[in-house]
Amino acid sequence: MSQTVTPSPTNFEKLQTEGAIETPPSSGLAAFRQEVVALTRRLFIQLQRRPSTLIAGIIQPVMWLVLFGALFQNVPQGLFGDSQNYGQFLAAGVIVFTAFGGALNAGLPVMFDREFGFLNRLLVAPLASRFSIVIASAIFIATMSLVQSAVIIGMSAFLGAGLPSAGGLAVVTAIVLLLVLGVTALSLGLAFALPGHIELIAVIFVTNLPLLFASTALAPLSFMPTWLQFVASLNPLSYAIEPIRYIYTHSNWGFNDVVMQAPFAEITMSTALLILVGFSTIGLMSIRPLLRRSFA
């Protein structure tokens, strides 16, 4: 007569039963969500240990507002379009460039993870999707950018730039998120493609100031020579700056309103938003082949 022997549960199974170890989710969507949450939490833990990153990211744009606003406070009214003062004109540029700078630096943590070997371990892990690395970085940078933008908007209102309406603030938030998503994807692509952090830092330094001055952040298109007007009209930052600036200067704004007189066309607010959507989509699509790479 044979006797059936029931194997005793292993320690791992006991821990799972007791809830000490979380059972991995069965569905791909749940696994992807769990990966995004874990990777995002790791970035916020790093920020908690080094809060100087956020503090410096808030102090710098406030200094831009105060110093540049004071530098041009005596310019004749109407010189910078419909803006009541230069602080109101500058606020949109500071919001966008702060978000852009933070997103451009998004690749640095990934590059350091790559150099220290953590990224390789992550890439060989049974991830539901490597795209979770991109989404986690985008969530982290977007949160940082929204905090910085809130401080900039509050400070600019204190300095006399005014405060957009609730609908205007919603559009400003959407513009910041679209810009952050696209630039973060491009920065992460550079972190995967470049050989080391020295090269990535060099690209960041070389890119920052030219894109700032070749945009409408500091001066309107009408102040620029013709060739620079074309360059600024092709700069994605201008398509984020001008809608925000229009919202600041027009309380009764609409999506069909012209926000920028480019040399080749009149750009409406809806057109600018569509261009930002396309820019973010291109950024996300361009990084997909690089996510399949493995590193020695």
Rank of each mutant, 00 (worst) to 15 (best):
A20P: 10
E22D: 08
F44W: 01
Q48V: 08
F32G: 00
P24N: 06
R33H: 04
A20N: 13
L39R: 02
I21V: 11
P24I: 10
S26C: 06
P25K: 04
T40Y: 01
K14N: 06
K14W: 08
T40C: 01
V36Y: 00
E35W: 00
L47D: 02
L29E: 09
L39G: 02
A38D: 10
V36T: 03
L39H: 05
E35K: 00
G28C: 08
R49D: 05
R50K: 12
V36G: 01
E35I: 00
I21K: 06
P24L: 07
L29G: 03
E18S: 12
G19W: 04
A38G: 06
L39E: 09
I21Q: 05
L43A: 14
A31V: 03
E13D: 03
R33D: 01
F32V: 02
E18N: 10
A20E: 15
K14F: 05
E18H: 07
R42F: 04
G19N: 05
N11A: 15
A20Q: 15
L47V: 07
R49T: 06
I21H: 04
L15N: 13
L39A: 09
E18M: 13
A20T: 13
E18L: 12
T23V: 13
E22K: 06
F32Q: 00
V37D: 08
F12V: 13
L43D: 14
K14Q: 07
E13Q: 11
A38Y: 14
Q34F: 14
E18I: 09
Q16C: 07
F12K: 10
A20F: 14
R49G: 02
A30Y: 04
T10S: 07
T10N: 01
L15F: 10
L47G: 04
L39C: 02
F44K: 01
A38C: 08
P25Q: 10
G28T: 13
F44T: 02
I21L: 12
K14A: 09
A38I: 10
A31H: 01
P24D: 03
S27G: 07
Q46D: 14
V37M: 11
T17E: 15
L29H: 07
E35M: 00
L43Q: 15
L15G: 11
G19T: 04
F32E: 00
F12Y: 08
T40N: 03
R42G: 02
